[in-house]
Amino acid sequence: MQPGTGGFAEVYAEHVTPVWRYVRLRVPADADAEDVTSQVFERAIRSWSGYDGTRGSVGGWLMGIARHTVADWWRRHGRELPTDLAASGLGEGVADDDPEGEALRRLGADEVRRRLGHLTAREREALALRFGSELTSPQIAELLGITPSAARMLVHRAVGRLREVMGDE
């Protein structure tokens, strides 16, 4: 796929669903996911002329933008979350420095996001990429800057942890 706004219409049509699914697993509410998904495509179309097909797939490029946009969203909205989250008692066994996980556990609009909130940020990211965007382990590895076997192990650990969370309920 070569840069050009015409080509971007095809990219958008093909990738809007995986981007939406990834983003939805990463933020607490669907309304937030809609905002973030819109921002992802606004950013993508602005930088489409700079996309270099030799450096990776267009899907990977879009997911990179999605990851940064989600991170920016949390930077902006993390401060606006209720201040009693830390004292909610829902964060047992989870690192204290994970406000995103805390917010998902507390404010997640559905079961899947509340359960993902019990995972570490890295595990959550891996599962959102594997199950939301349906990327393969090598693609996840490329995005996260790790080896494919490390990506597989990360997903393995995350699924194991999710089983524990579901078992504890």
Partner: peptide, 25 residues
């Protein structure tokens, strides 16, 4: 997990992004 992750994006979101892409084009 696969079933929970597989949601369809809201039609108005798809339409909004599509309109933005067409405007840009």
């Amino acid at each position: 997990l696969a079933a929970s992750a597989r949601t369809t994006p809201p039609p108005d979101l798809v339409a909004r992004i599509g309109a933005g892409v067409r405007r840009r084009a």
